Amino acid sequence: MIKTLKTFAFHLPSLSVGLTFFTLSMLFGSWLARLPEVQARLMLSEGQLGLALLGLPVGALLMMPLAGWLSARLSSGQAMTLSTLLFCGVFPLPAFAQGPYSLFAGLLLIGFVNSFMNISMNAAAAAVERHYHIAIMSVCHGMFSLGAMVGAGSSGLIASLGVSLQVHLITVALLMVGLHLLLRPVIHSLPSAPAENNGLSIPPRALLGLAFIGFCIMIGEGAIADWSAIFLRKELQAGPFIAGLAYAGFSMAMAIGRFMGDGIRLQLGLGKAVTMGSLLGAAGLLLAILAPLPVLSVLGFTIVGLGFSTVVPLLFSAAANTPGVSAGNGIAAVASSGVIGFLVAPPLIGLISDHFGLALGLGFVVILAVLASVTARSIKA
């Protein structure tokens, strides 16, 4: 019988996996909070930036089948170490981009390695759960959001001090390498999960509703990650520190919500929890777009994080328990819809923003969140 682990910080195998989640998002948070200056330095329009940002999800999508194959042939510890060191090695590359094409190429390479790291650390979390009969997946995803919060929050402060993006990303990457090497003895003793199909999966009919919700919400998560800091800088003339707080607040709320996710599900039921989370996210984003002051916009993006935080983990749970569909295939199908959402988000928001403004580009995400809440009413789990 699997039980919730209440002593996560003192269980070294679980903590090592959770800190790997933290490493991935710490780097991403550091990068995303400084996107406005990359856009300004390269003189890119919203549409051009959106197409350049497409490199990351395209790389992740192309690499996913190979990443699953690699993870299945290495032990949990080997896969986590190799993917983490590769990711830290390539992550500073976009800071050296000289134009949209080199930015796309750098992000494409990051997407390749990100896919490998993402699959390896989730597989390791599942293996720890199975071996020790504990539940840590939700906490690990909370650690991911916590890392993004720390990365984005510190990034805004570092940018305001005049530290170059190149020095910033290289330093953070080296710190994360040091953290991983410190944990290496524990990581290499982790249990390994049995090999499964980790590639893309087309949703069967029974999962179409869940897949659609995942698609809508992941577009929203991708939009906040890529465009929140830019929105505050360009639309509300916020400084780099305040602009960085938009994604930091979003990530902080995501972490809080995910740490509380299991309790929310027990209180409300899965369908109602997804419905209310989607609507809360839509309301928060509406506040962020319409707010006359940067601080209110940051509050709005924080509310979005609280609303969206539990939706995807709850969708995975519903997919795993759908009658007639295996747990692995169900989760893979919903996860694939999320990857496609991330794939669509950067150019879609960028192109809408080019023609109608960034506020309306983000407003499209409000509509998708409302549609997700309507669809969620049909979830029976």
Rank of each mutant, 00 (worst) to 15 (best):
G55K: 01
F8T: 00
L54A: 15
A332S: 14
G55D: 12
A126D: 12
T171L: 13
N118L: 01
E196N: 05
A173I: 05
S76E: 06
L27R: 04
Q267A: 08
L210Y: 09
A318H: 03
F356A: 04
P194M: 08
F22W: 11
V344S: 13
A288G: 07
V339L: 11
G199H: 10
S326M: 05
G220Y: 14
L169I: 10
L165R: 04
T302H: 06
L285M: 14
L27K: 01
G271C: 08
V38I: 13
R233N: 14
R130E: 12
L183H: 07
I256H: 09
T4H: 05
L175T: 04
I136K: 01
G111K: 03
L175D: 05
P191G: 13
A72W: 06
L35P: 00
W69N: 15
A152L: 10
H133C: 06
S120A: 15
L182M: 13
P292R: 02
L146V: 03
F316E: 06
L70M: 13
L358N: 14
T4R: 05
F301V: 08
G162I: 11
I242D: 11
A282D: 08
G147F: 01
F21Y: 12
I303L: 12
L183Q: 11
A291I: 05
E37G: 12
L293W: 01
G50T: 12
A97W: 04
S138A: 08
G261Q: 06
T23H: 00
L358F: 13
L85I: 11
V370P: 00
G307S: 10
S309Q: 05
V172M: 08
G18V: 06
R233T: 15
I289D: 06
F104T: 15
N321H: 13
A67T: 09
A372D: 12
L368P: 14
L108G: 02
K234R: 15
C88I: 02
L19H: 10
S71L: 01
G77E: 05
A195V: 00
H168W: 02
